[in-house]
Design a protein around this nucleic acid. Structure first.
Length: 670
DNA sequence: GGGTTTCGGGAGG
DNA sequence: TTCCACCTCCCGAAACCC
């Protein structure tokens, strides 16, 4: 940070160089005295450890900008000419694929959390209010925004800006409820709409516009009115040929307004040219700073003009696009008063492991990469990860591995710890619970692939669709579990047996293959498989010393078949798992509360308990039959500073920048 | 040499 | 009085593994 910058004759105003996101243009903040906000933020922050860390980061950024300037200076005329050709060619390619055929609508609720709180407590109306606490604010209403108070601002700074600010604690249950109401409206216009968060959604309204012979603007008007009638809340909308443009448009007439960008090349180009780069999704505070200070780029027009330069110094990468995808990771983190007390740190780690476990349990997830996130007392953020051989889920396993990671960092004074689980067993279609285990059924692969393609084929992405995807995964998951139940003693590496068998043990209701087994025509195959494998099964069960489920010993193939069928029935029944919803609300096994209308979630939850039980059974079996397994078990690879020596990072090409952004591609950003 | 993992960091809500 | 969250996703490069 440059200190004591002066304007001719003025007093020093050091806050001018303290770069925060709080003075950035945001809806409802047009009339804000930016300099005053900047000064108060600076004065409130100055001298804190947070501030010192920000200074360090700022210094690194300045160094990076200097490096880029140096690289830029090194480029010869020939280089520049070459990269300009590359840029021009790319522009031509993109122009050829420009798609102006779709109409996208981005709906964005106005100050959502704050509006919901005002709805349930009308006395807040007209008063400056923020949802959150003294440490951090989630949302501020428009009255508070006039003082410069905004989301992601610490509460104590907000209070300095607006002493009469009212704080309301967050209540996600409430927001989720209202979010559901809005989504019911969105669904009417695009059943495959894409929810970007609780308060934002993307809708492809091309079809509904055609069917009803209405313009995008008319649909937007109607949709906003409908949302207001259903919820009592207002929202803003943007209509454009692609999602990212629609998002930019929805911000223009906020709150309770809309903006339409017509599907016309000239209109799009004119609109984009004047657009500040910061409006582009993916360009944040840092990238904006780099582009402005290293290249003198502030608008999209300048960006296009300097395309050659950007091609030379930035790698080819498109900006982030909202995509339909399954969950990639799940995490939990907590901030606390900085401490170096190891007992306390381990206790906090145990709490976080428990929280992560609870969240994973809710979604029935098993993961094998565990990342420990640390924030030191001086705000430095570090992460340490380990990838395990087995997928894990239990809080004990999470804590065991997290503790190893933490141990390697001690002694240390921390103010935050977090745990993230990734690399789920659904990551790769058909990947089994043990990555070395080649057991998953061919049919799942094909079934899931076709369903996944279906989901991916359009720009889906709503939570509803995520849920669908999740359910699909859940399908394959329960199949695996079931397989463990019936074939727990089989050598997991013996894929020959399992490929046949898995087909007959799927409980997925929408699977053609699963139904087949119940048809007389396929009894033959089933009998054959069961006869052959049950013999092995029974003898191995005997060897293992475990009691035979269903007293299979000596039973005929028909009887064995029946036992399997019965088992399937058991798996689908909550009651038989021992799970009951107390007061029709609370899980009798773990106490989690879930209202009756969360039908799918409840089913998943029930499945989870079943999975948990089966895994316990399997692992207890594992310990007894470990000699049967001829598997080489690699030692967990735990990374630590001591093991990993890193080179000093070399100046790398920037990213998140692409001239693709200038093209209306409905499958991309523009 | 190519694939995978780790780690730091940017971004958005 | 209080003193800068939490969660998720993505990318790039180095390190590591085979």
């Amino acid at each position: 940070m440059e200190k004591n910058e002066t304007l001719s004759g003025d007093k020093p105003r050091p806050w001018q160089s303290y770069h925060t996101v709080y003075t950035n243009a945001k809806a409802g903040m047009e009339g804000v005295d930016k300099e005053k906000v900047q000064r108060i933020v600076y004065e409130t922050s100055k001298g804190s450890k947070y501030f010192e860390n920000e200074e360090k980061k700022e210094a690194l950024l300045r160094q990076k900008i200097e490096n880029m300037r140096a690289q830029r200076a090194k480029l010869s005329a020939a280089d520049l000419s070459h990269y300009q050709t590359v840029a021009d060619r790319r522009i031509l390619e993109l122009e050829a694929t420009r798609d102006l055929s779709r109409i996208w609508l981005h709906a964005d609720m106005d100050a959502f959390y704050a509006a919901v709180e005002t709805l349930s407590n009308p006395s807040l109306k007209g008063k400056p209010m923020a949802v959150g606490g003294m440490s951090m604010i989630s949302t501020a209403n428009y009255e508070a925004r006039r003082f410069g108070v905004r989301a992601a601002m610490p509460g104590f700074i907000a209070r300095k800006l607006c002493p009469e600010l009212i704080f309301v604690p967050t209540d996600f249950k409430k927001y989720t409820h209202y979010s559901e109401l809005t989504r019911k409206v969105f669904e009417k216009y695009d059943p495959n709409f894409m929810a970007a968060s609780l308060d934002e959604a993307y809708l492809d309204i091309t079809e509904v516009c055609k069917e009803r012979s209405m313009s995008g603007g008319e649909i937007a008007e109607e949709l906003r009115k409908c949302v207001n009638e259903e919820t009592g809340l207002t929202c803003s909308a943007g209509v454009a040929p692609n999602r990212l443009l629609a998002k930019v448009c929805s911000d223009i007439n906020k709150p309770n307004g809309q903006f339409v960008l017509t599907n016309d090349r000239m209109a799009v180009m004119t609109f984009i040219f004047s657009l500040p780069i910061r409006k582009i999704g993916g360009i944040g505070k840092v990238t904006e700073h780099i582009l402005r200070d290293a290249f003198g780029i502030s608008t999209c027009e300048e960006m296009l003009q300097k395309g050659g330069l950007l091609c030379a110094l930035f790698s080819h990468s498109t900006a982030d696009t909202p995509q339909v995808s399954s969950r990639k990771s799940i995490s939990s983190e907590r901030t606390f008063s900085a401490t170096a007390d190891e007992t306390l740190l381990y206790q906090k780690l145990a709490d976080i492991a428990e929280m992560l476990y609870t969240d994973m349990k809710k979604e029935g997830l098993y993961g094998r990469t565990l990342t420990l996130k640390l924030k030191t007392a001086s705000f430095e953020v570090r992460s340490r990860a380990v990838t395990l051989e087995k997928y894990i889920c239990s809080s004990e396993d999470i804590l065991k591995h997290a503790s190893k990671l933490l141990k390697a960092e001690l002694p240390i004074s921390l103010r935050l710890m977090g745990l993230r689980m990734s690399h789920f067993n659904e990551d790769k279609i058909g990947s089994p619970s043990d990555p070395t285990q080649k057991t998953l059924n061919n049919f799942i692969v094909s079934a899931d692939l076709s369903r996944k393609n279906l989901d991916d084929s359009k720009s889906l992405g709503s939570d509803i669709n995520d849920l669908k995807l999740m359910n699909n995964m859940e399908g394959s998951f329960s199949i695996e579990i079931h397989e463990l139940q019936c074939y727990g003693i089989r050598d997991p590496l013996d894929s020959n047996n399992l490929q046949d068998l898995n087909v007959h043990h799927c409980t997925s209701t929408d699977s053609v293959e699963a139904k087949k087994i119940r048809e007389p025509s396929s009894n033959k195959i089933a009998d054959k498989v069961i006869t052959k494998d049950m013999e092995e099964e029974v003898s191995q069960w005997k060897e293992s010393g475990l009691s035979l489920p269903g007293q299979l010993e000596g039973e005929s193939p028909d009887r064995l078949n029946q036992v399997i069928m019965d088992n399937e029935a058991v798996f689908s029944s909550e009651q038989k798992d021992g799970l009951v919803w107390v007061d029709d609300y609370k899980c009798s096994l773990c106490g989690i509360e879930m209202p009756p209308y969360f039908e799918e979630e409840r089913q998943e939850h029930s499945d989870f308990h079943l999975a948990e039980r089966l895994q316990k059974e399997e692992s207890s079996f594992d310990t007894r039959t470990s000699t049967l397994r001829q598997r080489s078990v690699k030692k967990d690879r735990i990374s630590s500073q001591s093991k990993r020596k890193r080179h000093k990072p070399s100046p790398k090409k920037g990213r998140h920048l692409s001239i693709d952004m200038f093209f209306a591609k409905s499958n991309q950003n523009f």
